[in-house]
Each structure stands twice: as structure tokens, then as C-alpha cells.
């Protein structure tokens, strides 16, 4: 494993835990898109079905289980425990506009036409756009709490580090996976606008608010 991959995983883990702790400590999920979190839970579930069929390493298995467990815990906090604080009116992105085309694409463009492979491909495509309901929510309300922006930054950083990891693996191991790379590039691009706002506002101590 190279350093970019490791820090990518850790950044991903940080994002997930930041969000979970934010909701838990503030007893509120205001400003958080429950729809994005459901999409991430679907992403982890469909991608990590190989937990049942193959063992790679202790690191691999434990990280997968932590990601799945945390994502379901987050969904539980939003839709059950702190449901009263959930801002459903602003979380109005139509997820079927993501799931249906992504599902179709996974059936059409995959490495192998088998159930597990199509679900893996589906999870890769879905992950690349799963943050859209959250970004849509921020664009609707025009602002985000600082801790929410840290969450988004770690999510975007994770993707950017994975891209570097793939460049590394291509040069040193001759390995590349076109499906993962294209989806990863798309996903990273979605964060670019946010990265700009994060650097120019949040890191200078200002709250992230969009011009009206």
C-alpha cells in the first residue's frame, strides 16, 4: 500500500467519524443531507458484498466493516434518533435521478456481466455522485456549518488522494481500472468548487455562506 492510498483511507475515515460525532455531540442533524447518507450506505453495502466471498487482509476487512457500520449509524441518527432535527424540506434532491441512470450505466458498462460485478460497478458510479444531495442542500440554504465543511473537505481529499494513488499504481505496478478512474475523476471534480470556497473562506475563519 502506498502513502496516498493510506492517507486517502484515513481521510475517508475522518470524514465519516467527523459527521457521526458532529450529529452525536450536537444532538442534531440540521444541515446534513439524509439522502446523501442513505446513498453512501447503499454504496458501501453494494461494494463490500465481497466481504462474504473473499478475504484480502485484516486491514481491508476491518475498514470495510467500519465504513458500513458508521454509515448505517449515521442514517439511523438522522432518520430515527434525531429525526426531529432533520431538515427534510431543504433535502429535496430527487435521488431517483441519480440511482436510475447510475444503475443503467452499471448494467451497460462493467468489467463482467455478473451480479457481484454489476453491484460493485454500481457502487463506484453511485459514490461519484452521492454527495450531490448534500451540495444541493447547501446551495439551497446558502450556508453550511463549519464542521460540515470539514466533513466535505475530508471526503473530497480522500478522493483526490485516491487519484494520486492510482497514478502511483499505474507507474509502479502497471495497474489501472478505467471504471474506478473515470468515476473518481468525476467525483473529485464535483468537490472542486467546494474546495475553492473552503480555502478562501473556512480556512480564514469565516463561515461558508454562498452569495445570495
Amino acid at each position: 500500500m502506498n502513502i496516498f492510498r493510506l492517507f486517502g483511507d484515513l481521510s475517508h475515515l475522518a470524514a465519516i467519524i467527523i459527521l457521526l460525532l458532529k450529529i452525536w455531540k450536537s444532538r442534531s442533524c440540521a444541515g446534513i443531507s439524509g439522502k446523501s447518507q442513505i446513498l453512501f450506505a447503499i454504496v458501501f453495502t453494494t461494494r463490500y458484498l465481497d466481504l462474504l466471498t473473499s478475504f484480502i487482509s485484516l486491514y481491508n476487512t476491518s475498514m470495510k466493516m467500519i465504513y458500513i457500520g458508521c454509515s448505517y449509524a449515521t442514517v439511523y441518527l438522522i432518520y430515527a434518533k434525531f429525526r426531529a432535527t432533520y431538515d427534510g424540506n431543504h433535502d429535496s434532491f430527487r435521488v431517483e435521478f441519480l440511482i436510475v441512470p447510475v444503475g443503467g450505466l452499471a448494467v451497460l458498462i462493467n468489467h463482467d456481466f455478473s451480479l457481484l460485478e454489476i453491484l460493485w460497478t454500481f457502487s463506484i458510479y453511485l459514490e461519484s455522485v452521492a454527495i450531490l444531495p448534500q451540495l444541493f442542500m447547501i446551495s439551497k440554504t446558502g450556508e453550511a456549518e463549519t464542521i460540515t465543511t470539514h466533513y466535505l473537505f475530508c471526503q473530497g481529499l480522500y478522493r483526490a488522494l485516491y487519484l494520486i494513488n492510482w497514478i502511483w499504481r499505474f507507474y509502479f505496478e502497471g495497474f489501472f481500472d478505467m471504471i474506478a478512474i473515470v468515476a473518481g475523476v468525476v467525483q473529485t471534480i464535483l468537490y472542486c468548487d467546494f474546495f475553492y470556497l473552503y480555502v478562501t473562506k473556512v480556512l480564514k475563519g469565516k463561515k461558508l455562506s454562498l452569495p445570495a
Partner: peptide, 10 residues
């Protein structure tokens, strides 16, 4: 093989 490489990633 390539499949193992891919499944190794999260």
C-alpha cells in the same frame, strides 16, 4: 491478478 488489486481498494 487485477481483480485482487481492485478488491484490495476501499
Amino acid at each position: 491478478d487485477d481483480d485482487d488489486f481492485r478488491k484490495d481498494e476501499l
